[in-house]
Nucleic acid binder design. Structure first.
Lengths: 216, 216
DNA sequence: TTAGGTTCGATTGCATCCAATCACAACAAA
DNA sequence: TTTGTTGTGATTGGATGCAATCGAACCTAA
């Protein structure tokens, strides 16, 4: 009798998962080449599951495949980065709206704990990690099948760039973020859907514009 | 000297493209099983490119793969269908906004021609085909790298269901659509971004709600 | 009858080998 | 120099064979 249906994961999926971790952790630079043979050796597998894993990561937006040529860590120019933020502005408020009514008290406590740690973060590293954790937690209540994928994908592909750009952000940015996070938390606790949407929209939009300023 | 860089397409890509056409044309019912061996025979290829093609279609949302089990034409329950429409409401107005400023006069003429044909459509088949054509054309000016994929993906996966549900829509629905399309066309010609966004949002939303009514 | 276990055919997943393609360097011609 | 051509090594793409896995029918025992 099997209690937990462990869904016998294929090795291609395991490889994809591990590669994904590595990429998100910043092991590879955007634009870095991924050679099938090298990966095969690294993961002690043949090239077949590697190829499949690369296709999966392509679907996640982490890797870009060019036929007969190779695979690279996805690289964004600033226009693409900006585009992704514009999509986030539209899409994440919807996800938040769908999530809030189903947030359990346990999740809300978790959220508050994360927010507290986020406010005490001293390094940019910590800030980014906890910021991601906080926002994705606010979406936890949304039982979606597509929206969640889209949102995750955008957080994934923009990850290396958030890291890169955040280094040069002014202190002001972080205090604004801090205030907005607190407002968002309150709106969530009040279950005020419209207000929460509006705050989140503004939060993402402001970040986009500040990053754009840096670029110019 | 090669003038058109024909980007030597791998057979896996060709297979993916053809399969995609078939699926969108309704050759397979949602939920239909896709067996690798059968497809391999049909396309006179081995299973390797078939597997890759299936992964690509999975990324397009057209196919759902379950490990060690098989691939099926993606099937949506009504909740998922509704979710996709809610995403469309948020995302397509953005795409329209990014598109309008770059629409050439040639494209606008094409749009008007399509709209005219759309208004004269007599069968549901024709209506669906031209409706898709019209809307996707309005986005043609947007030079996006991600948004376009997302939007296309949603039109793709909901295609069989639009076909199914449209059969039972009231005449009223089509007259509303007709009016909204005309308003949209005018807003586009005026390059009135806000108005265009609003009309499109309402258009998608109304469709979603009418389809929901049918279901109940 | 029904719940649980077992077997077996069908199908997917992976490894290996060979073919196709590309990128780059070396060379030739203007 | 610059442009075009040709070869060659590295790498990806595809075919094939075998192993792993699933699920459904069949059996067994209560």
């Amino acid at each position: 009798m099997v209690l937990i249906s462990e869904d016998n994961i294929a090795t291609s999926q395991a490889i994809a998962a591990e590669l994904k971790e590595n990429i998100l952790a910043g092991k590879y630079q955007p634009g870095a080449r991924l050679v099938q043979d090298e990966l095969a050796e690294e993961f002690r597998a043949s090239r077949s599951p590697i190829r499949e894993a690369l296709r999966m990561l392509e679907a996640d937006g982490l890797v870009t495949i060019k036929s007969h040529s190779g695979a690279w860590i996805t690289e964004l120019d600033f226009a693409e980065f900006e585009e992704l933020y514009q999509i986030r502005e539209r899409v994440e408020p919807l996800m938040l709206r769908l999530s809030i009514p189903h947030l359990t008290t346990k999740l809300i406590k978790e959220l508050e704990a994360t927010l507290e740690k986020l406010n005490e973060a001293t390094t940019v590293q910590q800030f980014l990690k906890l910021d991601r954790e906080f926002h994705l937690l606010t979406y936890e209540g949304a039982a979606t099948s597509y929206l969640g994928d889209i949102v995750q994908r955008m957080w994934n592909t923009t990850q290396p760039y958030r890291r890169r750009y955040s280094q040069i952000l002014e202190r002001e940015h972080f205090t604004s973020a801090h205030l907005e996070h607190t407002l968002l938390m309150n709106a969530i606790k009040r279950a005020d859907l419209d207000d929460a949407e509006r705050i989140l929209f503004g939060h993402i939009r402001r970040t986009r514009l500040e990053l754009k300023d840096i670029k110019e």
